[in-house]
Write a protein that binds this DNA or RNA. Structure first.
Length: 873
DNA sequence: AGCTACCGGGG
DNA sequence: GTGTACGGTAGCT
């Protein structure tokens, strides 16, 4: 009996059968390979009504299809090994299914294509679930979790200490691997132009950073002892004091050393940033050029690149983490950053930046024969810093990825690359096993196209009346969409059941009250195709309902998630800080998943797709928020604003207690786990108009909380390409208005700022505008100010290109704006164009706010007139 | 306006 | 590998 933590799984064919290869680390820290020969590929067949089951099962066993392949010169066949009759649930209905076993995993698609042509076959299911994933789900083995294997010493070609041929294998509990060995890496390449051509340009240096000490890493490569492991390998020699820089003779040697370092370090994780799309494919291409066998997989396999446009790189037995993938697919939504460049992501998550050197210069320094040592050394520091940041990011996000692995039950490698709809889907596939449900097929291309054309109404957003309001109470529905799915039993399998049609409890189709105007979400409006073809008859607001007698699969699963999360939140109240880090990662993960179900139901690629269900979710959502608005208005509350799941009540003439009592009344009537929560009382709230003279802008407001903090939503002042003067001013004006309630004071402040601008008292750093170059300068057709400046920078010999952030100031003059843009270094404070900044930066930043108090442009532009008016009033 | 092609990340 | 990204938008017709 050996205990170990599984890390990676693959399979190989051996004597006509599939053998599962489970790579992991034992509890004593050694690498292990467990072979499991006791798992056979299978899928399900559902037959048509009057089919003869026994006869067909017999026929299935006679199938023998010659495969395209040959194994060891012999003909290779696809066949069924056995069949079983099983009772399953398919979209909630009991069905009899035939479980068909095949000789090999690759036989499954062949058999599927053959069987689905047969006249008696209604549908073939679960024939597209990858063998290794099926294995983990069926055997209930969660990667990273402690397992126990019983068996004998086995034999296979693998770089591990132990190989066990398993008799039995099972997971012991949810204890996970404690200190996985992580190794971050990064390459720098020769790149004379902006194009990246791996076939042409060499790798110049490669860096590693690991937090494991060298005790178990073996000494052959002179791996650094001490607390961490850091290394930069390069093939251009220079004098340096950094002992982590290692010199080799050529790029080929660099690649050989890369292999050795990995083999010596024996990482569980290799971590990169965009390494799926850049570092590993590049390394692979270069090693092919030199015919270097890059057999770093624990089974001596090479780096495997995903086919087509997939952009993945896999190393058997070693978990390749690409932090960029996780950040861009999952974490990104919660980040402020506009782009997922390492520098920006590290800055936001870690508060650390990349080493400040222009990587675009590396090829020049590299080519220079009399290269000054510190010049190239800087790029080594840069190279190492990228690995350091990557490892730190990995440490930061790993708890969340681990939670996903524990919940979904797939490998870290797979989970790392999943989008939120895939996460939901694989969680459902895992749970389908537990609840004896058959997994629906993915839609064929034709259906995907149809699905893409369908759209439905989104959430309700209330148009606020522009103004400044005091004492605002905010309530919102806790997890509105998940709680609707649970409380109304919304699921593809409970939709329009035959048993509950006459109950009369249908999905709401119209609004309760015409007092509040409904607005379709922008997205819906854009996508809406009002014309309907003959195929899709004008099913105008078809009546829908969900079963009352039988709980649906999706509601069961989502309720589990919500309840688990509530338990964890409860535990966190009493837990210590260290434990809470993991609990927090877990509750965040559960929240992420519960919140993804609504989107999943309406996602065109989903197996459990149900646009009626998704539509019902938003319809109930509108119903419940409109109910609160309506009831509030009946009780003479002034409703200021509402968006999807929240309502803002003006407390003027009402007490907080009255508002709380009101929310209690609402709560008593809510079904299931739905709950309207009190968010808080805010001393002041500000709503502005969208355009001049129009009604209130949606999703754009500012709140003052009781602690004096200001929460800003939707104001574009946060945009990068605004000058500091505009940003600062907007912040100040919002502060004055919300904290002091004085429009006049805000106006005075704006006027003084305008005067300062006119008098050229504003420093240049406050009038600088930042814009990023998106492409090559030559490629711009419309040459904006930043492009014009970039051209002049280039003429001066400053290397600028896509990604460069151009900082410029608009100066006075009669030419077009673009002509008047200057670098800060070129001008002095008296040169900026005050009028430009007043009209294009200052006024747009504050005019909507001041308009609330009846002030227009003229009021803050002309000082004298205004003071006269003030005197008059 | 509607459609297609290309881009992101990486150097 | 029992699979084949994806969502946004610049730029063209």
């Amino acid at each position: 009996m050996i205990q170990f933590y599984p890390l990676d799984v693959t399979y190989k064919e051996h004597e006509g059968k599939a053998v599962i290869y489970l790579f992991g680390r034992t509890s004593s820290g050694e690498q292990i390979l467990v072979l499991d020969r006791n798992f056979e590929p299978y899928f399900y067949v559902l037959l048509k009504q009057n089919a003869d089951v026994d006869q067909l099962r017999n026929n299935f066993k006679k199938i023998k299809i010659e495969s395209d392949k040959e194994t060891a010169g012999a003909k290779d066949f696809v066949f069924v090994t056995k069949t079983e009759i099983v009772e399953k649930l398919y979209f909630g209905k009991k069905v009899q299914a035939i479980r068909v076993y095949s000789n090999l995993p690759r036989s499954v698609p062949v058999l599927r294509d053959f069987l689905k042509q047969q006249p008696d076959v209604s549908v073939v299911l679960e024939a597209d679930i990858q063998f290794t994933r099926r294995y983990l789900i069926d055997k209930k083995i969660t990667p990273l979790s402690l397992c126990e294997v019983d068996g004998e010493e086995g034999s296979a070609r693998a770089k591990v200490k132990y190989i066990i041929d398993a008799k039995s294998i099972k997971q012991l509990g949810d204890q996970i691997i404690e200190k996985p060995r992580m190794l971050a890496f990064d390459i720098e390449t020769y790149s004379p132009d902006k194009r990246i051509i791996p076939e042409q340009n060499p790798i110049l240096m490669i860096s590693f950073y690991g937090d494991f000490d060298a005790s178990g890493a073996g000494g052959t490569s002179g791996v650094d002892s001490g607390s961490g492991f850091k290394k930069v390998i390069t093939w251009k020699k220079f004098k340096t004091d950094f002992d982590y820089i290692e010199f080799v003779n050529s790029e080929a040697d660099l690649l050989e050393r890369f292999k050795e370092v990995v083999e010596d370090y024996k990482p569980d994780f290799m971590v990169g940033y965009f390494s799926d799309g850049f570092d590993l494919p590049y390394i692979k291409t270069r090693s092919e050029k030199y015919k270097i066998k890059l057999d770093i997989g624990l089974d001596h396999s090479n780096i495997e690149l995903g086919k087509g446009t997939k952009n993945t790189a896999q190393i058997t037995g070693i978990i390749h983490l690409d932090i960029f993938k996780y950040v861009s697919k999952i974490l990104g939504k919660t980040l402020e950053t506009e782009s997922y460049r390492l520098d920006l992501v590290a800055n936001e998550l870690l508060g650390e930046r990349k080493y400040d050197v222009d990587i675009g210069e590396l090829h020049k320094v590299w080519d220079n024969k009399d290269v000054s040592p510190d010049e190239i050394e800087k790029f080594c520091i840069y190279n190492l810093q990228d690995s350091v940041l990557t490892l730190k990011l990995a440490r930061k996000v790993l708890p969340n990825i681990i939670e996903l692995v524990k919940i979904i039950g797939l490998t870290v490698y797979d989970v790392n690359r999943m989008s939120s709809s895939q996460i939901v889907e694989w969680y459902l596939i895992n749970k389908a096993k537990e609840y004896n449900q058959l997994v629906p097929n993915r839609p064929p291309y034709t259906e995907t196209k149809e699905r893409l054309e369908q759209s439905f109404e989104g959430a309700f957003v209330f148009e606020p009346k522009p103004g400044l309001y005091k004492e605002v109470a905010i309530f919102d529905y806790r997890s509105l969409y998940p709680s609707i799915i649970s409380s109304h039993n919304i699921s593809p399998g409970t939709l329009d059941c035959s048993c509950c049609e006459d109950d009369g409890d249908y999905v709401p189709t119209s609004f309760l009250n015409e007092v509040v105007r409904s607005e379709k979400s922008e997205k819906t409006e854009k996508n809406e195709k009002p014309e309907r073809t003959e195929k899709e008859p004008a099913q105008k607001k078809a009546k829908h309902w969900f079963c009352k007698k039988r709980k649906g699969f999706i509601p069961i699963i989502i309720e589990e998630l919500i309840k688990r999360r509530m338990r964890i939140k409860e535990m966190m109240k009493s837990g210590d800080a260290e434990k809470n880090v993991f609990l927090d990662a877990r509750q965040q993960t559960l929240k992420l998943m519960a919140n993804s179900f609504y989107g999943y139901l309406g996602f065109f690629g989903a197996r459990w797709y149900s646009i009626e269900s998704a539509e019902a979710v938003t319809a109930y959502g509108r119903h419940y928020i409109l109910k609160v608005i309506n009831e509030a208005q009946k009780r003479k509350f002034v409703v200021l604003y509402s968006d999807t799941d929240s309502i803002f009540l003006h407390l003027e003439g009402k007490t907080l207690k009255e508002a709380l009592d009101f929310s209690e009344e609402i709560n008593v009537e809510l079904p299931g786990i739905m709950e309207l929560e009190f968010e808080g009382v805010f001393p002041a709230a500000l709503f502005v108009s969208a355009k001049e003279g129009s009604y209130g802008a949606k999703k754009k407001y500012a709140l003052l909380d009781k602690k004096g903090n200001i929460k800003v939503k939707g104001f574009e002042s946060v945009r990068r390409n605004w000058s500091l003067i505009a940003k600062d001013l907007q912040e100040k004006v919002l502060g004055i208005v919300l904290r002091e309630g004085s429009g006049k004071k805000a106006l005075e402040y704006v006027k003084s700022a305008i005067t300062d601008l006119k008098d050229h008292k504003v420093s240049l750093d406050k009038v600088q505008i930042f814009t990023q170059l998106q492409k090559e300068i030559e490629d711009y057709d419309s040459v904006g100010p930043h492009v014009r400046v970039a051209m002049r920078m280039k003429a001066k010999g400053i290397d600028v290109g896509p990604g460069s952030i151009i900082r410029y100031v608009i100066t006075s003059g009669k030419e077009r704006i673009g002509e008047r843009a200057r670098l800060v270094e070129e001008i002095s404070q008296k040169d900026y164009d005050a009028d430009y900044y007043i009209n294009n930066q200052v006024i747009p930043a504050v005019d909507k706010i001041l308009a609330i108090f009846g002030y227009s442009k003229d009021d803050f532009l002309s000082e004298k007139k205004q003071s006269k008016l003030d005197g008059f009033f």
